[in-house]
Design a protein around this nucleic acid. Sequence first.
DNA 1: GTATTTGCAAAGTGTTTGCAGAATA
DNA 2: TATTCTGCAAACACTTTGCAAATAC
Lengths: 130, 130
Amino acid sequence: VPRRTGPRERIVTELQQLDTFIAAQALYTRLALAGDRISMSTVYRTLHLLVGLGRVDVMSDGHGQRLYRHRPGLTHFHYLTCRRCGLARAVEASVVEDWAEQVRAAHGFAHLDHKVELSGVCGPCADETH
Amino acid sequence: VPRRTGPRERIVTELQQLDTFIAAQALYTRLALAGDRISMSTVYRTLHLLVGLGRVDVMSDGHGQRLYRHRPGLTHFHYLTCRRCGLARAVEASVVEDWAEQVRAAHGFAHLDHKVELSGVCGPCADETH
DNA sequence: GTATTTGCAAAGTGTTTGCAGAATA
DNA sequence: TATTCTGCAAACACTTTGCAAATAC
């Protein structure tokens, strides 16, 4: 049974205030700037815990770093992220889920899992380019 | 202009013989076992080069390690991989490409890029579980 | 002959772990 | 009080880099 502690509460709160994915290190820095002296170990351990509990989603940034984000709801999500500002919107993806199931059946696979990531440049960020 | 060298040829050949994603380290080991004493640096540098040339696809294994695979054709691919044996089949995904375009338009994003990964247990591997 | 590539060893990243003291239930 | 959590520093795993010798063109 996980305990309710100061560091954990602050980490969760900080994550919930973001609508972006964030690296463990960046999260650590934000907390530090906010005056919370929480160690990297605790940040990593807490993120692990939250991922395990399904309260946080992870994605890899393609350069060996993992990014975390508070999960906006109770189920599995897919995100559309802005490469410029980091904004990450959860998107409806039943089309993909259905397609995945068909592919699974067609190839005789079992226990299918899927991952979908969309990234681009959001409207506001695109406008800033003049 | 990239040069045609022994180490590079052997790396490409080895990758082409696999229908799975493989880690740089594992590739290095395979080459060593085959009698090719190619340094880790060269393996990494060559993989980078090939990715840049679009001849190799990369994915992250979710634990901070990158996996590489010879790209079976000229364009962008999506794979269905077996978590048990590593087999990675390229799959048709126009449904997903279309869906991605719709999501892009609906959210006012530009320059959309997407990544789709399917993983499961292939037929043969599932049969082995009794 | 010139520019590129290689191997080596060292340095860099991001993440995990052992342990003793602090905190929670 | 019994267990879980924290911070610290050291350990890790994977990847990148500087440099001099080797190689391709």
